[in-house]
């Protein structure tokens, strides 16, 4: 889902930098509200988010896929924590690993650091609070919906290029959206659902107190 440089035209890249400014501002406000001892914790958890993304999983078809881990952090800590962590993870990946572009950085953060954790988290919340579904199953469904939505948004960004700035991604929406959505519906989506469900199950079983972290983080010091 990491869009490299050269796939999105300059107009789209600039638009996403503009869109991300208020979101980064809001994320920074959330960060400022943390207690001093929670900042290093977020640093270590960002390293955790990085590792989750580098962890390739076997998927049907004999290839591998990676999950993003945004929903895991959003559920266990806070969706804004996921935005902060993924903003940093994607910066390190773009600059030091060549994974994801620099001009397309803001678009990548929007897809994987905003759409994915927020959609995943609110799906999880809706299922646990309104439907009364088990936390583990809700987390799995949340991760699935989150990753597929983010992939569809990425597909849309790629697919609008021929209409607004030809010379970049050559495929129209009718090709790019199904290509991205189907790949994630069938491969990375199920993997993200099972892995996220298993993480939530494991943490709840081994350290149920960590489920209270969200509440603890909201107690500003």
């Amino acid at each position: 889902m990491h869009i490299p440089d050269g796939y999105l035209g300059p107009y789209t890249c600039a638009l996403f930098y503009i869109v991300m400014i208020p979101i980064w501002y809001k994320a920074f406000r959330w960060l400022k509200g943390l207690k001093p001892q929670q900042v290093p914790l977020l640093g270590v958890l960002t390293a955790f988010a990085f590792l989750v993304m580098m962890y390739n999983l076997p998927v049907p078809g004999g290839t591998t896929a990676h999950i993003v881990g945004g929903t895991i952090i959003a559920i266990l800590i806070d969706p804004w924590a996921a935005t902060v962590s993924l903003t940093i993870v994607l910066l390190i990946q773009a600059l030091f690993f060549g994974d994801g572009g620099i001009t397309s950085y803001a678009a990548n953060v929007f897809n994987m650091g905003v759409v994915l954790p927020f959609v995943g988290y609110y799906t999880y919340r809706f299922l646990t609070k309104r439907v009364g579904l088990d936390e583990v199953i809700s987390a799995g469904i949340g991760a699935y919906v989150g990753i597929v939505t983010a992939a569809t948004v990425a597909g849309t960004e790629l697919g609008i290029q021929p209409y607004i700035q030809p010379g970049y991604c050559p495929y129209t929406l009718s090709v790019s959206v199904p290509a991205m959505a189907i790949a994630h519906l069938l491969t990375a989506g199920p993997a993200a659902a099972v892995v996220t469900g298993a993480v939530v199950w494991y943490v709840r079983k081994s350290r149920p107190d960590l489920f209270e972290m969200r509440k603890i983080l909201r107690t500003r010091g």
Binding site: F48, G69, L76, T196, A198, V199, Y202, R207
Partner: peptide, 11 residues
Amino acid sequence: EAGKHMGATFI
């Protein structure tokens, strides 16, 4: 299995 490893790493 990957989920359990990630859960343990999170803790």
